[in-house]
C-alpha cells in the first residue's frame, strides 16, 4: 500500500473523468434530478418541515442509476481499450490501483453531492433546520454512494463491456437496496429469524433511512465501510482472475 501511488492513480482517473464533457453533463443531470425528486416527489415545500429528509430519501434511488454510471468504465473500458495491460504492468500494485480508481469515483460522487448545497441554503433560509442532522445526512449519503461504487468497481472488473457492467451493478445494487422491504421479507416467510435479521441488515434502504433521519449510527457507518472493503477486495480478486486467463 502506497499513498503516493494511490494518489497518482486517483488523479489520472479524475483527469479521465473530466477530460470529456460527459462528467459535466452527468453532474448537471444529477443536480436536476435531485431537485425534481425533492421538490415534486418529496413535496419539500408542502411538508413544511425545516429538514432535508425530502431530499435525502430519494438518494438511494438516484444512486441506483447514477453510481453504476460513474463506476462502469473503471475497469471495463481499460480492458476494452487494452490500457489495462499498460496499467497492470506498471509497478503500482493491484491494491493501489483498485483503491486509487475507487477513490477517484468516490470523489467524483462527492463533488456531485456537494453541488447540491443550494438546497441546504434554501432550507436554512426558509426555516431553522438542525444542521447536525443535515451533515450526518450528507456523510451517510456519501458513504452509501461508496457502497454503490464499490459494487460497480467489482462488476466493471468482470466484463469488457461498459453497458453490461452498468446493468450488473444496477441489479446487484438493487438486490442490496430492497433486501429489507416487507415484500422481500414475506417471500422469506420460511426462513428462521436470524436469516431474516441478516437480510434486513443487508439493506441499503433501511440503513440509509436511519441516516437520513439524522441518526448516524456507528453500525451503519461500519456497514457501508465493510461493503466498500468487501467489494474492493472482490475487485482485486477479479483482477487476479483476469490475469490468470
Amino acid at each position: 500500500m502506497s499513498l503516493e501511488m494511490i494518489n497518482i492513480v486517483m488523479r489520472r482517473q479524475l483527469y479521465s473523468y473530466f477530460a470529456t464533457p460527459v462528467a459535466y453533463v452527468f453532474i448537471v443531470m444529477f443536480l436536476v434530478l435531485a431537485g425534481v425528486f425533492s421538490f415534486y416527489l418529496g413535496n419539500f415545500f408542502e411538508k413544511g418541515q425545516a429538514d432535508l429528509s425530502a431530499f435525502f430519501n430519494f438518494h438511494p434511488w438516484l444512486y441506483l442509476f447514477f453510481m453504476p454510471a460513474i463506476a462502469m468504465g473503471l475497469w471495463s473500458s481499460e480492458r476494452q481499450l487494452g490500457t489495462i495491460e499498460l496499467l497492470m504492468t506498471l509497478p503500482i500494485g493491484h491494491g493501489n490501483v483498485v483503491l486509487g480508481k475507487f477513490l477517484a469515483a468516490w470523489l467524483f460522487a462527492a463533488l456531485a453531492l456537494l453541488l447540491t448545497f443550494p438546497i441546504w441554503i434554501t432550507v436554512s433560509y426558509l426555516g431553522d433546520p438542525d444542521h447536525g442532522v443535515i451533515v450526518a445526512g450528507y456523510v451517510g449519503s456519501w458513504l452509501m454512494a461508496g457502497g454503490f461504487l464499490a459494487i460497480g468497481s467489482c462488476m466493471s472488473a468482470c466484463t469488457k463491456n461498459q453497458i453490461v457492467a452498468f446493468l450488473l451493478t444496477v441489479v446487484v445494487s438493487f438486490i442490496f437496496m430492497v433486501s429489507g422491504v416487507p415484500m422481500v421479507l414475506e417471500a422469506f416467510f420460511w426462513a428462521p429469524q436470524w436469516l431474516l435479521d441478516f437480510i434486513v441488515g443487508l439493506s441499503f434502504l433501511i440503513r440509509f433511512d436511519a441516516i437520513a433521519r439524522g441518526v448516524l449510527d456507528v453500525r451503519d457507518v461500519l456497514y457501508f465501510c465493510m461493503q466498500i472493503a468487501l467489494w474492493l477486495y472482490l475487485t482485486g480478486l477479479m483482477l487476479k482472475r483476469n490475469q490468470a486467463q
Partner: peptide, 25 residues
C-alpha cells in the same frame, strides 16, 4: 513494456500521459 497495439489513455494529452508515467516511475 510496450504492449501490443501501444495502448494509451486516449483522452489524455501526450504531456499529461507521459507525466503520469514519470510519476509512477
Amino acid at each position: 513494456y510496450l504492449p501490443e497495439g501501444a495502448p494509451a489513455y486516449g483522452e489524455m494529452t501526450v504531456r499529461a500521459f507521459l507525466d503520469f508515467i514519470a510519476q509512477v516511475r
